[in-house]
Computed example of a mutant assay.
Amino acid sequence: MDHRLFDAARSGDMTTLQLLLQEDPLLLERFSMSSLENPLHVSAFSGQVVFTEEILRRKQDLALEPNQQGFTPLHIASASGTIEVVRALLRVGPNHVLCRLKDKDGSIPLHCAVQRGRIEVVKELVSSFPESLKEVNASFETPLHVAVKNNQVEATKLLLEEIKKRDMSPEILNMENREGNTILHLATLGKQLQASFFFFFTLIYIPL
């Protein structure tokens, strides 16, 4: 594929994008037949909102395509933390479709956002598809498992609040990962002291 398209996606160069599409109107179509990285992966990583929106306008099914690592553009945007790109991607079709797509490790975009502590993205993803709170990766870890394991204190707090608000507490708090650890086990066994402290504080003072 033309490297100029990927350079344009990285920099948000709309002029080059328009020129390339004039030269080859079917340029974006060919990415649908490939398992390689497409321009949306690159613009999502680089936080190029306008470029992302234009690609989606012309070929929105590219949002469903994984790259070699199994990451969709929403996985990448969720990890990178550019909330405007996340919102642009979520406007493509039913939210539950994009929010439930898994990478090669079985992680959904919410796992990626939680691991990096992207709080605004976590809020957006949960609001778009609350059932994602119960999704597990290949290690049977929910997003809350991932938050505690990575000592993401604010993400842990937010997820607990969302779980409580949506009456999912008993189910999610009792879910076990591949090693048989619930959130409570993970909080006590690990070295994630801040997240563990908040977790116990919540259990004691905020009935779940």
Rank of each mutant, 00 (worst) to 15 (best):
R178N: 12
V114G: 00
E161K: 13
R178H: 13
Q192W: 01
L110E: 02
I119S: 07
L186P: 00
V136Q: 14
I172N: 00
H75I: 02
Q115E: 15
L74K: 07
I83Q: 06
E162F: 10
E162W: 06
E176T: 13
V122Y: 01
L184P: 05
L173W: 04
M175Y: 08
I76V: 06
E179T: 14
L173Y: 05
F199R: 00
N95C: 14
G117W: 00
I119Q: 08
G180R: 02
V85D: 07
I163L: 00
L160C: 05
V126Y: 02
R100V: 06
Q69M: 12
F201I: 05
K102T: 12
Q194H: 15
A138D: 10
P109M: 03
F199H: 03
V153N: 05
N137K: 01
S127Q: 14
S80P: 05
L89V: 01
A195N: 00
P73D: 11
Q68R: 15
E131D: 15
R178L: 13
C99K: 05
I108W: 05
V85W: 06
D103A: 00
L173T: 04
N177G: 01
V122T: 09
E162C: 10
N151T: 04
E154K: 15
Q115T: 12
L144P: 04
P170H: 12
I76T: 06
K149L: 14
G93S: 01
I204Q: 12
L160A: 03
D105P: 05
C112Q: 08
D105S: 13
I172P: 00
A155S: 15
H75F: 01
F71D: 14
A79P: 02
V148I: 14
L144K: 08
E84S: 13
I76R: 00
T82F: 15
T188E: 13
N181K: 11
P73A: 03
L184T: 11
V86S: 11
T202R: 12
V92Y: 01
N151Y: 06
T188D: 10
L184C: 14
V97H: 09
V114W: 00
K134Y: 07
A138H: 10
I163S: 01
G190P: 07
H96A: 10
C112F: 09
V148K: 00
L125Y: 06
L90Y: 12
T82C: 12
G93Q: 10
L184I: 09
I119D: 09
F198I: 06
I172V: 12
R87N: 12
L110G: 07
A155F: 03
F129V: 07
I204P: 03
R100K: 14
N67P: 04
L159W: 01
K149Q: 15
N150Y: 10
E135C: 14
I76F: 01
A88H: 05
G81W: 10
